[in-house]
Lab assay of single mutants.
Amino acid sequence: ELKKVVALYDYMPMNANDLQLRKGDEYFILEESNLPWWRARDKNGQEGYIPSNYVTEAE
């Protein structure tokens, strides 16, 4: 089971490997080892790295 998180803030990608975050949207965490960058997937199936301090665990 993948960990689900909710974006606390918008995040615009800095490079091609990053994933855009939209405040309030849910994302699945694929990999937590790259702290403070986590690999995530959005609801459309896009994958990339996000800043872990921009998300919180979903209820």
Rank of each mutant, 00 (worst) to 15 (best):
K23I: 04
E26A: 08
E26Q: 08
G45N: 13
T56Q: 15
L21E: 01
K43H: 11
A7F: 02
M14T: 11
D42V: 00
R39D: 02
K4T: 10
K4P: 05
I50D: 00
E26V: 10
R39E: 04
N34T: 14
A7I: 00
L19G: 00
R39W: 10
P51N: 06
G45E: 05
K23C: 10
V6R: 07
Y49M: 14
M12Q: 12
R22Q: 12
E59D: 06
G48A: 01
K3Q: 03
R39L: 09
E31C: 10
E31G: 09
N44M: 09
I29S: 02
L21F: 00
Y11T: 04
N53T: 09
I50F: 06
F28L: 13
F28W: 15
G48R: 01
E31L: 06
P51K: 06
N53K: 11
V55L: 03
L30W: 05
L8N: 06
N15C: 12
R22F: 10
A16I: 04
I29D: 01
R41G: 03
D18H: 15
V6I: 11
K23E: 09
R39Q: 10
E59H: 09
N44C: 11
Q20Y: 10
K4A: 05
E57W: 09
L8H: 03
E47I: 05
A58H: 07
N17A: 10
E59P: 11
R41C: 11
P13N: 03
V6N: 04
A16T: 10
Q20I: 07
S52H: 05
R39A: 04
R39M: 06
P36Q: 13
D25M: 13
P13Y: 01
W38L: 13
N44R: 08
N15Y: 04
E1N: 12
A58N: 12
I50R: 00
Y27I: 09
A58K: 13
M14N: 15
I29Q: 02
R22S: 13
A40T: 02
P51H: 10
E57H: 14
Y11R: 15
N53M: 08
W37V: 14
G48M: 00
V5S: 02
E26L: 12
Q46W: 05
A40H: 02
M14A: 15
N17R: 13
P36M: 11
E31Y: 11
E1P: 03
P13M: 02
V55H: 00
E32C: 08
Y9K: 15
V55P: 00
P36V: 08
V5E: 01
L30N: 03
E32K: 05
N34V: 15
N44D: 12
P36H: 06
S33N: 08
S33V: 09
Y11W: 14
F28Q: 08
M12D: 10
K3S: 05
G45F: 04
E32W: 07
K23G: 05
R22T: 10
Q46L: 12
D18Q: 14
I29R: 02
R41P: 00
F28V: 12
E59M: 05
I50L: 10
V55M: 03
W37M: 13
L2W: 07
N17K: 09
N17Y: 07
Y54R: 08
V5M: 05
P13H: 02
N34K: 15
L19I: 06
P36R: 11
L35F: 14
Q20A: 13
L19F: 02
W37I: 07
A40I: 03
A58V: 13
K4F: 04
K4I: 10
T56A: 15
M14D: 12
L2H: 05
E1A: 04
K43T: 12
R41T: 07
